[in-house]
Amino acid sequence: MYGLKTDWLEEASPRYYSVQDYEGAPARWCPGCGDHAVLTAVQRLCRDEQLAPEKTVMVSGIGCASRFPHYMKTYGFHGLHGRALPVACGIRSRRPDLHVFVATGDGDCCSIGAGHWIHAIRYNMKMVVMLLDNNVYGLTKNQTSPTSAKGSCTNTHPTGSFLRPLNPIQTTLGVTNASFVAQTVDWNPPHLLATLQAAHAHPGFAFVRIMQRCPHFQPGLFDSAQNDPNELLLLTHTDGIEVEDSIKRVLKNQHEHDPSNLDGARELADREDAIPIGLLYQNGNADRYDQFTALGIATSRDEKMTAIRAELGRYRI
């Protein structure tokens, strides 16, 4: 934390960022929408980590969740439906000094942007990716999403959706070079914040699926999970997500899971009796593509001129 040293006047940064320094336009999500909680958690994370707002970039696609950047006072990129990840990778590619966050939804990430999702996992460039998963298309008004439960009644499937939902955790775990896969819920702010903190600290692509309530189009979706703590399965481990004792007292349904155990993570991801929350998998040593893309980043102008002349020289006649 900032400013606790006795000689802080000499060494401390002249700027201290409070939560207000990260607050952009007033959030215009529906009342009761889970996105509000995620926004608050991200602002707190930024404050706790004292991330310079000008060095922080919030990238999104299109959808309710993708309005996220507008409500932050950092740099933001509210781009196209499904295309947040390629943009975020491009931002990251030559700017290791930036803190890159991605806010994406279940339609944005798991449907139209699914191809980018797979490859961004594999690139493993350092960024925090938050999948705000409310199991429905909200901005376009209630269509089935890839994560909608089978039988969900929506405007596109009024008599109930036909297919079993895609499991974003299982999918992410299945991609080569996946390095951080966590799950949390919007209605448990301490766990949400702790998960995002772990994601931010991870040296690579940190994928966090956040179960997010949508009272407007999916009323009651997570009611039972909210009311019955036993429907959540708290993953615990010394290498996992560190949570306060108060959380452990409430969430008594716990499971000791070593996040280096990929097979165990896959088994957990398939659990249907409870929603596992916590760190399912982490590999801090996975190859990072942003180390490749940053090659030559410090090349001096003289070195560049030498290289250009040498290249032209190869074609001289």
């Binding site: 970039v57 990238v59 990129f77 781009g79 196209l80 295309r83 990840l85 390629p86 943009v87 975020a88 990778c89 491009g90 931002i91 990251r92 590619s93 030559r94 700017r95 930036l98 191809g115 980018h116 797979i118 490859h119 490749f292 893309t293 940053a294 090659l295 030559g296 980043i297 090349t299 070195e303 560049k304 030498t306 290289a307 250009i308 040498a310 290249e311």
Partner: peptide, 26 residues
């Protein structure tokens, strides 16, 4: 890279444009 550049072979044409736009924005 000797001239300070990098080639990104993207997963598709769309991503290639998105990546370039991201880099330029940055």
């Amino acid at each position: 890279h000797k001239a300070g550049g990098v080639i990104h072979q993207a997963e598709d044409e769309i991503a290639a444009a998105g990546f370039a736009i991201g880099a330029s924005y940055a």
